[in-house]
């Protein structure tokens, strides 16, 4: 076996196992009865995604994925889960009024993915360009550079949205200001 095919094989093996971890843990998240178990599987899912990022040579993104999602946001999730009474969680789980909304949101997301894929990867010529660029795409310098030049406006817009969310949280928690 020549080294190139072996490399490819190893690549596929890693991708397959990562994909399996992501899918399996994602399914576990929505099927577990205990909410804390779901949270733990969600962390595992984040790890799988981080692994995919590393395979795409985007170490920076992988580290940020773990740092922000697993290390930060999930801790807050857990915090809330631990604070909420177990019975309350079970009761809300049983109610099926949200089900339709969830299905709708899922469908919208699926549509978005399909649009993105047909718009980029499946188009001719784009795939090669992405592969070419992806060699330095994950580096910290590249991301920093592109965030503050090409995508400056969306970046600032997102930060504004976050600011609005922050102010909203303060207003909600403090009735009288």
């Amino acid at each position: 076996m020549n080294p190139e095919t072996m490399n490819e094989l190893i690549n596929y093996l890693i991708f397959g196992s990562l994909a399996f971890i992501i899918l399996a843990s994602a399914i576990m998240v929505i099927t577990r009865k205990e909410v804390v178990h779901s949270a733990l599987f969600l962390i595992l899912c984040f790890f799988g995604v981080a692994g995919l990022y590393i395979q795409l040579r985007a170490q920076f993104l992988a580290a940020v994925q773990i740092l922000v999602y697993a290390g930060g946001i999930m801790v807050l999730y857990l915090f809330v889960i631990l604070l909420v009474n177990r019975k309350v969680i079970e009761e809300t789980k049983r109610s099926k009024s949200f089900k339709k909304i969830f299905i709708l949101v899922g469908l919208v997301l699926l549509l978005e993915f399909v649009l993105i894929f047909t718009g980029t990867v499946l188009k001719e010529g784009v795939k090669e360009k992405i592969v070419e660029e992806s060699f330095n795409m994950g580096s910290t310098e590249y991301i920093g550079g592109i965030l503050y030049t090409k995508f400056l406006f969306p970046f600032e817009l997102v930060s504004l949205v976050l600011l609005a969310a922050m102010i909203g949280a303060i207003v909600l928690s403090k009735r009288k200001i």
Partner: peptide, 25 residues
């Protein structure tokens, strides 16, 4: 030697807290 060394440290070290929270729960 990772080129994201310090970020890696912060990312991984931030996971230790799960052990503590889960132990408590």
């Amino acid at each position: 030697d990772l080129n994201i060394g310090l970020l890696y440290i912060f990312a991984v070290a931030s996971l230790g807290i799960f052990g503590i929270v889960m132990a408590g729960w």
